[in-house]
Every structure is written in C-alpha cells, then in structure tokens.
C-alpha cells in the first residue's frame, strides 16, 4: 500500500458507516470514506453499485438511514443535540449545500436562462452577493472553462461538452470547498469528453477537493490521489490509483477493470 499524497489536517469529507435503502433495496451497506483538502478521489464501480447514491448523500439530495457524513466538520442533514439527532429544516440543509458544488451526468443547466444567468443565479439569489462582483467572477469563470464567447447563449444552443463546462462554471461560482462529479462525461459524444476532462484536470491542479465518479481510467490514473472501488454498496478496495488500477487485489476489481479497459479499446 502506498501512502496517499495529500493528507494534512482534518478530512474535509468524513463519511462513517453510511447506509441507505430504497424500500427493501439495500443500496449502501456501510461506506467509510475520508477526503482530505485538495485531494481528488475517484469512485469506480459497476452500474448499480451505489456510486451516484453515495455522492448524492454527501450533499443531502438523498437522506441516509445509518452512519454519519461530516463535511468540513459539520454533520450533514442533522443537528446532534446531546446524542439525539434532529433533522434539519429545509432552509438549513440548503445552507449546508452552498459550499458543495455538484456536476450532473445530464448537465441540468437551466434552459430558460442564458449561460451567464445560469452562472450568476445562485451567488446572487442564494448568497445575496453583489451583482457586479458576481458578474465579473462569472465572466472570469466562463473564460476559465473556455466559453468566454458564449455568455448570451441559451443552453439549448450549446454542444453537450460546452453545456457541461457551463455546469462546472455554475458550480464554481458559489466558490465551493468541495466539488462532486457524477459521471460528468458519460452523456457526451466521445470527441467532446476531452474538453470537459481538461477543465477538470485544471481544477484539480488548482487545488480543488473533488470526488469524481467516472469510468475514465486515464483521468483516474493521472489526476486522482485516491481511488475507491465500490460494488454492491460496499467499498471493495481502495488506495493509490497505481495500486487499485495497476495492481488490483480483488477478483471483482480485476473483472470490472478488464471490462472497462476492453470497452475503452473497442470504443
């Protein structure tokens, strides 16, 4: 086992024994995960293994049935009053989400707003920031994701790759501490994957803490500090990408990697 590159201070994300069921479908069965500031963690696993559900639990888009999730030391979704948990109000949960950016597989840009309005909406309406300040930041962010020329376009006029880059800029406009990516390139035509991964690489290099669900093995190997392989709602194997991807120990990991790599070669 190699030691992860960055492990300084307290973890930014501290998930302990997280479990979650949809009716009688036990999707997460005791997940532990620590993510340290500046780390890029890649979640791997076959379809249906619970990766999406897990990262949605981190920002409370799903509620968990067991365990605890802390982000920046704060318990997500509940107030701990003398050992008794009280569910937080909707407004309080909304406040907890402000520091966590999320990028979805299907972009989910607001189609009735222009690119610039998409990026500016939340800082102004949620944080109550000054419009001028936000506009400057939004324009800078659009430049950073390579879309400086598209502020007035509507999402429907953009390619999938451009939309996903706007979605990244929109999340960054809230100046989050943590970014969650749920298969950000899976809905893209193959020739558009690279432009989105390039933005994510740049973001990782800038020191952003990221949890990324992806099947892009190149990205995982080159960018991530830590890879977690999940199957059936449990963490099967985790560690440095060179170990987990380069020299997997478990049969299930080997099988999964063989399948993904075969797809990559055929595709």
């Amino acid at each position: 086992m190699s030691t992860p590159t960055l492990r300084t201070g307290e973890p930014l994300v501290h998930a302990v024994n997280v479990s979650k069921s949809f009716h009688d479908n036990h999707v997460l069965r005791g997940i532990d995960l620590d993510v340290y500031p500046g780390q890029v963690v890649v979640l791997l696993g076959p379809s249906g293994s619970g990766k999406t559900t897990f990262i949605r639990c981190i920002n409370q888009l799903e509620t968990i049935d067991g365990g605890r999730i802390f982000v920046d030391g704060e318990l997500m979704g509940y107030a701990d009053k003398g050992g008794v948990l009280h569910r937080l109000k909707d407004k309080e949960i909304a406040a907890q989400r402000r520091d966590i950016g999320m990028v979805f597989q299907r972009f989910n840009l607001f189609p009735h707003k222009t690119v610039l309005e998409n990026v500016m909406e939340a800082p102004i309406k949620v944080k109550g920031e000054n419009r001028k300040v936000v506009e400057e930041r939004a324009i800078a962010l659009l430049g950073r994701v390579g879309l400086a020329d598209k502020p007035a376009a509507y999402p429907g006029q953009l390619s999938g790759g451009q939309q996903q880059r706007v979605a990244i800029a929109r999340a960054l406009a809230m100046q989050p501490k943590l970014m969650l990516f749920d298969e950000p390139t899976s809905a893209l035509d193959p020739e558009l994957v690279g432009e989105v991964l390039a933005v994510m690489r740049e973001l990782a290099a800038s020191g952003m803490t990221m949890i990324v669900v992806t099947h892009e093995m190149g990205f995982a190997k080159e960018v991530s500090d830590h890879v977690v392989f999940m199957d059936g709602g449990v963490v099967v194997e985790e560690g440095h990408p060179n170990d987990v991807i380069g020299n997997p120990q478990h049969e299930r990991t080997k099988l999964f990697l063989r399948r993904v790599l075969a797809e990559d070669e055929s595709g």
């Binding site: 888009l61 407004k91 999320m102 949620v126 979605a167 929109r170 999340a171």
Partner: peptide
C-alpha cells in the same frame, strides 16, 4: 426533476427552487 436537483445542489431553498427554476419553465 434534474432541474430542481440542480437548484437544490446550488443551495436554493424549496420555495426559491419552485419560484425561480421550476415555475418559469
């Protein structure tokens, strides 16, 4: 449904999600 989720992920309250994102669409 992804629209409301994206709005919530940005920290919007349910009321704001409804009035600013869902209802206009």
């Amino acid at each position: 449904k992804g629209q409301a989720e994206a709005a919530q992920a940005l920290g919007m309250s349910p009321g704001m999600t409804m009035t600013r994102i869902v209802l206009p669409q």
